[in-house]
Write a protein that binds this DNA or RNA. Structure first.
Lengths: 222, 222
DNA sequence: GGGCGCGTAGTACCGCGGTACTACGCGCCC
DNA sequence: GGGCGCGTAGTACCGCGGTACTACGCGCCC
């Protein structure tokens, strides 16, 4: 039996969730809360297995409430429900320690499966949000154990390529680099292309970021 | 109708998937492959909507096959199936560009829902794997911190424009910013254009440099 | 009530950026 | 002497980025 606390500022929405959860035997709604502060208080008091948390609420919102609930150290897990798939919310909620994110328009079975998974200690994310999460994950999370022999790229650059990267880091266009280095633009493109491939950058913008992150470019006084 | 290519080295396993997918009207199995190389070839030939990809196979494994399929630029999406929830596989598969990961012991409805989501362009992850993914994500992905008060040029930006500049500083394309901020690409272009004009940048590359020089962007661990 | 700033959104257009090739001279070294 | 890394250069092609507009709803304030 999974105990659930429903948190939403709209009574009708709470009622709907309540009805749904009452319709199956494995969940038991132990309480409701209309805003963040009440959610934090009732979680401490009722110790539900799962807190079904709306994000947008007057006063303390769902993210801050999640943060406090997780920080309090209880074993209640939080399943966040968002109407909009605004990333700021998702990021903030992940950081706050939520166990899942589903969109409010999820089908009933999805919601129930989500609650089941969260109660079990797993986590769930709505498919529509997962796509972007994976993209971002792939970009930021270092690929330990797989590749990266300590210096992904930089060491494999030739002297010329490093010069080119520095020039790119200054914000110069291919044409400007060609003029300053006395090369054809084709040659510059060839070099830039190789640099991008070696450092794993999608375009010169990410190369600029790479240059800054690796100390190849340094802030000017503007 | 979603067309599916089944990739698994075990004939019995393929047979099981085939039966399952044939049992519902919305999926159509257009082929099978017994190893990675065959999967790559048949994907190019049959152009299925979804490739159901086993990880562990003799010869070219599912990860490498996924990498090649995604790199080839077709519109086939890959749903990876793992028997074990080994992290190395998950990481590698995310980096390879897979649209989803499910455990082989998933319930039939989960698998079908997964295929549906992936075909639709979304992504899915088995709840048991999501937990760890979120933890790692929260550890590595930097939070959107908007700091740094008054600054020449910077002060004339509206809040929205400053948000856009920060996003540009992360190396995001206009399309990515539009998706993450839930805006049209036109709107993003309008914002970016105004930002460039206000800070006196020629293009977004100089805007990235500006962001770094003014502390709006900060190096990540990479 | 009208003006204004802001955020949103669209159309049209063009050029730079990036990819995918091929090519070749030069110097080095097995 | 042939292979190889490197720097140079070209062609072809396409898409994203950026510009130049217009437009409109909303909230604020004179």
């Amino acid at each position: 039996m999974t105990t659930v606390l429903i948190v939403d500022d709209q009574p009708l929405q709470r009622y709907g969730f309540h009805l749904l959860l009452d319709s199956v035997p494995e969940t038991d709604v132990v309480g409701e809360a209309a805003h963040g502060a009440e959610a934090v208080r009732k979680t401490a008091e009722l110790r539900p297995d799962v807190v079904l948390m709306d994000v947008r609420m007057p006063g303390m919102d769902g993210i801050e409430a999640t943060r406090r609930i997780i920080a309090s150290g209880g074993r209640s897990r939080v399943l966040v429900l968002t109407t909009f798939d605004l990333d700021e919310y998702v990021h903030a909620a992940i950081r706050a320690g939520a166990s899942g994110f589903l969109l409010k328009d999820a089908r009933p079975e999805e919601l129930l499966a989500g609650i089941r998974a969260v109660a079990y200690g797993d986590a769930v994310i709505a498919p529509a949000l997962t796509r972007r999460l994976l993209d971002e994950y792939a970009r930021y999370v270092p690929s330990h154990r797989v590749d990266s022999p300590e210096d992904p790229g930089l060491g494999s650059l030739t002297d010329r390529e490093r010069e080119i990267l520095v020039a790119v880091g200054k914000g110069w266009t291919n044409g400007e680099i060609a003029t300053r280095f006395v090369l054809s633009e084709s040659t510059v493109k060839t070099h830039v292309g190789r640099v991008l491939a070696k450092i794993g950058a999608r375009d010169r913008i990410q190369a600029v970021i790479f240059a800054y992150d690796h100390g190849l470019a340094r802030p000017n006084a503007d």
